[in-house]
């Protein structure tokens, strides 16, 4: 019984680590995205960790990525994107769109 338990836990842990997508960080500071151009691998699911260091809330939005998420001031948010075909996917901060602009560039590995 104990062995079954250990085996199951190991299987679950390994499945979990196998499924964990690569994480990329984006900072929001003074209503700007850093970096404003983020290169990610194409055809792979990735996890964006968006840290809003401003005191004001921001909404991460992208029509091309079909994503929208409000990120309150001084908090961080997780947004899953992809798998994406190679290409450029603009995103913006809906609350401060004049300055908060950026793009995700999905590139095939080895290029």
């Amino acid at each position: 019984m104990k062995n079954v338990f250990i085996f199951t836990s190991m299987l679950l842990i390994s499945l979990n680590s196998y499924a964990a997508p690569p994480t990329f960080e984006i900072l929001i500071k003074d209503h700007l995205f850093y970096p404003d151009e983020l290169i990610i691998p194409a055809n792979t699911k990735v996890k964006l960790l968006v840290k809003n260091q401003d005191a004001t809330p921001e909404e991460f939005e992208s029509y091309e990525l079909n994503r929208e998420k409000v990120i309150p001031g001084n908090t961080q948010a997780i947004i899953f994107i992809g798998p994406l075909s190679p290409g450029v996917y603009p995103f913006f901060g809906e609350f401060f769109p004049k300055t908060a602009q950026g793009k995700i560039i999905a590139e095939e590995e080895g290029k």
Binding site: K69, V70, I71, P72, T75, Q76, A77, I78
Partner: peptide, 14 residues
């Protein structure tokens, strides 16, 4: 919203 966003390992808002 800040608390709700943290639910379920960060996908509470969705």
């Amino acid at each position: 919203l800040p608390e709700i966003s943290n639910w379920l390992e960060g996908i509470g808002q969705e």
